[in-house]
């Protein structure tokens, strides 16, 4: 039928017209606010650690560990997904988001056992980030080696 073909051809446009798009301004504001807040918290932790006599590098490393812990804790308390609902990339990009992406599948698949459930599927979300993160750092390392 010609009409069916015609509708099928125009369908992408019809769908775009019918589909509401997210409010980008509001989403960006939330992402900026929440992402910024997480960074400020990280900075506060670093500064506090430094006042306790930690060297700058040690303080930075410990801040990372503490933020990962906070992300994991908030995920376990069913809070982090609610933050993510508003913050979007603002809570995905910081290291707390990485923590969330490991703990969330770990919680979900724990019921399928600690080895084949939690252990095997813990990195279903974070796995690609690790794989391509490592590959890109190798590439950057090689470039750095030759063009230093």
């Amino acid at each position: 039928m010609d009409k069916a073909k015609q509708i099928k051809q125009n369908y992408k446009e019809m769908v775009e017209k019918a589909s509401p798009s997210s409010n980008m301004g509001v989403n960006c504001a939330w992402a900026f606010f929440v992402g910024g807040t997480i960074c400020v918290i990280g900075q506060i932790i670093t500064e506090v650690l430094k006042t306790y006599g930690y060297a700058k590098d040690d303080a930075a490393m410990m801040t990372t560990v503490i933020l990962i812990f906070i992300g994991a804790l908030l995920t376990g308390l069913n809070i982090y997904d609610n933050i993510g609902k508003y913050a979007g990339a603002g809570s995905i990009v910081p290291i707390t988001g990485f923590s969330n992406s490991v703990v969330a599948p770990a919680m979900e698949y724990k019921k399928e056992g600690y080895i084949l459930g939690m252990g095997a599927r813990m990195f279903t979300v974070a796995g690609p980030v690790i794989v391509y993160g490592v590959i890109s750092s190798v590439v950057v390392g090689i470039i750095y080696y030759f063009f230093k």
Binding site: D81, I92, A104, M107, V125
Partner: peptide
């Protein structure tokens, strides 16, 4: 889709 506790946004569609 994704694990329940994964923080992200659902599109309006």
């Amino acid at each position: 889709r994704s694990p329940l506790e994964l923080g992200g946004q659902r599109p309006l569609t």
